[in-house]
Simulated assay, not measured.
Amino acid sequence: MSKKIICLFDVDGTLTEPQQPISPRFEKFLLETVKKEFDIAVIGGSDLNKIQKQLGSGNLFEKYKYVFAENGLIAFKNGKALPSQMIQDILGEDSLQDFINFILRYISELKLPFKRGTFIEFRTGMLNISPVGRNCSKKEREQFYEYDNEHHIREKFIQVLKKEFPDLGLTYSIGGQISFDVYPIGCDKTYCLRHIQGYDEIHFFGDKTAEGGNDYEIYESDLTIGHRVTCPKDTMNQLNVLITLIKENREKEQLNIPLQCV
């Protein structure tokens, strides 16, 4: 019997360029080619509104079997909302405010080539921290990304937070070009896997799969088959290879079915 397979996709850098909409060509490929072979699902660290903006017009929940926002802390199956968790309930308000106040002080003393607005984005199950501010233009995002690659602003920031708050039970992961996520231990992208049931294989596709990246834990999970990608074009290429392999295996299975005498 053929295996039941689902393909689970990161958004930024995997289905889309960072913070950009999915290309019509790629979306057509997903919905008309990949979806004929497997169920498909998406998981992003961003909130649901951002994911909806990036993944095209129309009903997101009709396109994807599962939709996971904020690492799966916001979850939908067939358009139906699943239980969620709030970061303030996990950490407690006093600890959360101490943490936020420290971040704001640190950023206020940080000297960068430029700064823009929205340095902390408060989400349901996590915080997104941007030293340069999430209100950057596309050009400014790219400039900061190059600057950060040289000066390691985000990495140093995370090390300071780990030292200052060792007992809060937090995980830090760098994703995208200008920010990093902070969430309670266990609330990384593997959190979504508790909702995915009834499959023989879960194939995960992500670009930030190195340790410290926000795809690392789910890529390394024993519950998934990980695919490291470099861009949407690479994702498409790897999907074509996967489809070919699965079809070949199905053909072999059919050839090996013993004939029955009637």
Rank of each mutant, 00 (worst) to 15 (best):
A75V: 02
Q88M: 01
Y66V: 06
M86H: 12
A75W: 01
S95E: 12
I87S: 00
G58M: 07
D94K: 15
E93F: 00
D89V: 01
P113Y: 01
L96Y: 08
E62V: 00
K77F: 02
M86P: 02
K80P: 00
A69G: 11
A81Y: 09
I107K: 05
R105G: 09
E62D: 15
Q97C: 04
A75N: 06
P113V: 11
D98G: 07
S108G: 02
R105K: 14
G72N: 09
K63M: 11
L91V: 05
A69H: 13
D89L: 03
E93N: 07
V67L: 13
F76E: 13
I87G: 01
L73A: 15
F61V: 07
G117K: 11
G79S: 11
D94E: 15
M86S: 13
K65G: 03
L112I: 07
Y66D: 08
S95I: 00
I90C: 02
F76I: 04
I103W: 01
E93A: 05
Q97M: 12
L73Y: 06
S108K: 06
E70V: 11
G58S: 06
G92T: 11
F114E: 13
Y66I: 04
L73G: 14
A81L: 13
E93C: 00
L60S: 14
I103V: 14
G79F: 05
S95Y: 09
G117Y: 14
K77S: 10
R116Q: 12
E70R: 10
Y64D: 02
M86E: 15
R116C: 03
K65H: 13
S108T: 01
K115F: 14
I100E: 10
Q97P: 00
Y64R: 02
G92R: 05
I103N: 13
Q85I: 15
I90F: 06
P83C: 03
L112A: 10
Q85C: 08
Q88Y: 03
I90H: 08
E70P: 09
E70W: 07
L110E: 09
N71R: 05
L112K: 03
S108E: 14
K115D: 04
G79K: 13
S108L: 05
G79T: 07
E93P: 00
N101E: 13
G92N: 10
F68L: 02
